[in-house]
Deep mutational scan, measured.
Amino acid sequence: EAHFQVQLEQLRSMGFLNREANLQALIATGGDVDAAVEKLRQS
Rank of each mutant, 00 (worst) to 15 (best):
D34F: 03
R12H: 15
S43C: 14
A21C: 12
I27N: 06
A35I: 10
V6K: 13
A21D: 15
D34S: 07
S43V: 15
K39A: 11
E38T: 12
F4W: 06
D32E: 11
R12Q: 07
E1G: 03
S13R: 10
Q10F: 01
A21M: 11
F4M: 14
R41F: 03
A2F: 03
A28P: 02
Q5H: 10
S13Y: 06
Q42E: 15
R41D: 14
L40V: 10
A25N: 06
L11W: 00
Q5R: 05
E20P: 08
Q24T: 13
K39C: 05
M14L: 10
V33M: 03
D32P: 01
A36W: 00
F4N: 07
L17P: 11
E1N: 01
Q42A: 13
A21P: 11
K39L: 10
L40D: 01
E38L: 10
Q10V: 03
E9W: 01
A2S: 13
R19L: 08
N22S: 04
R41K: 15
A2N: 10
A2M: 08
V6D: 11
L40I: 01
E9A: 04
Q10T: 07
A21L: 10
V33P: 08
V33A: 07
H3Q: 12
L17V: 10
G15K: 13
E1V: 04
V6F: 06
V37A: 13
V33I: 11
Q42R: 09
Q5M: 09
R41N: 14
R41C: 04
A35S: 12
L40G: 01
L40P: 00
L11K: 01
G15Q: 07
E9S: 05
Q10E: 09
F4P: 01
G31H: 02
Q5A: 10
Q7D: 04
A28W: 02
G31A: 05
A28S: 09
L23S: 10
V6C: 05
Q10P: 00
L26Q: 00
L11I: 15
R12Y: 15
E1H: 02
F4R: 02
L17Q: 15
T29K: 07
A21S: 13
E20R: 04
E9I: 04
D34Q: 12
Q24H: 06
I27P: 00
Q10I: 04
L23E: 09
F4E: 04
A35R: 11
N18H: 12
A36N: 00
E9T: 04
F16E: 07
H3W: 02
V37Q: 11
R19Q: 06
